[in-house]
């Protein structure tokens, strides 16, 4: 029972991480229809920005943390503007865009390696506070991430519902052609979405940096997690991405309660498999934002 309680807590903590990843990726995909594999390196770039600011620049951690979403937003927007947009204009096939995005991943990751070296970069001297609730141990990072995902989701919902740009994003994700017809500047909206989605990923990246450190390849696995979460939750649904993230986190954690841990990598994908066969549109696709 103690183990169950701990696994539940772990699942929630990791679920929050996955939810953040899925949220950003899902937002970008549903609005622009681009499978953005270069999401991974952008994720890494933001972690390195924080590391530079804190470990090299000597800024306080709080200041560095603010920097992450800003850097990621800039990097994400840049990637869209320089790489994807020219492609979109020429109406390229989804295969080509996918390969383009993979090519971008290779380029960005090797650039990061050339600049920072392949080794792990950590924020020296940072140790999260530990909370002990009966049999359950929690770190400040786990709790912080749950709070972060709720905050980010709330802010995002508010933005989408209350602002002009938000409405345009929703219109674009509903029907791209229609949005263009009614005069929405799809380029600009896509740019904003890339910035926004990347900034959300950066929040998760900060937690990764603090928990295990940053490497140039740190974004490789998160892209796949993000993809799985967004699809399981239902593409285009913000509550879906959040619930999907927590679901994947919990299933992964609690699933390994009885299943040997060497199957850790498969669990999320088995869940995805089952969900897609039962409900091809994702679990929470009905709950549109």
């Amino acid at each position: 029972m103690d183990l169950f309680a701990q696994l539940l807590a772990n699942g929630l903590g990791n679920g929050a991480h996955y939810a953040l990843l899925g949220l950003g990726f899902g937002l970008i995909f549903t609005t622009t229809r681009i499978v953005h594999f270069a999401y991974g390196p952008v994720f890494a770039v933001s972690a390195f920005a924080v590391w530079l600011a804190v470990a090299v620049g000597g800024l306080p951690l709080a200041a560095g943390v603010v920097l992450a979403p800003l850097t990621a937003a800039a990097a994400g927007a840049l990637v869209y503007w320089l790489a994807y947009r020219p492609f979109e204009r020429r109406g390229m096939s989804s295969h080509s865009v996918l390969i383009l995005s993979l090519g971008l991943s290779i380029v960005l990751e090797s650039l990061l390696t050339l600049i920072f070296g392949p080794n792990i970069h950590t924020v020296p001297g940072f140790a999260p506070p530990i909370f002990i609730l009966g049999p359950v141990f929690l770190t400040g990072l786990q709790i912080g991430e749950v709070i972060a995902v709720l905050g980010v989701a709330g802010a995002l919902l508010l933005f989408l519902r209350q602002t002009r740009y938000g409405h345009a994003i929703l219109a674009l994700s509903d029907d791209r052609d229609m949005a263009r017809i009614v005069g929405i500047d799809t380029d600009r909206i896509s740019l904003i979405v890339f910035a926004l989605g990347s900034a959300i990923a950066a929040v998760a990246a900060v937690f990764t940096l603090l928990n295990e450190g940053a490497t140039p390849s740190m974004g490789f696995n998160p892209v796949f997690v993000a993809f799985v979460v967004a699809v399981v939750g239902g593409l285009g649904s913000i509550p879906g991405s959040i619930l999907g993230g927590f679901l994947v986190g919990l299933v992964e954690s609690l699933g390994l309660w009885k299943i040997p841990t060497e199957w850790q990598n498969s669990i999320a994908f088995v869940l995805l498999f089952v969900v897609l066969l039962a409900r091809p549109q994702g679990l929470f696709a009905g709950a549109r934002r």
Binding site: L3, E212, E252, L256, P260, T261, E262, Q264
Partner: peptide
């Protein structure tokens, strides 16, 4: 005996099981 991929960035379940 708990296992993880060499590149795993999440070993929380493994550690929780090892602890018990």
């Amino acid at each position: 005996v708990e296992q993880a991929l060499a590149t795993a960035s999440n070993v929380d379940t493994q550690i929780a099981k090892l602890r018990t």
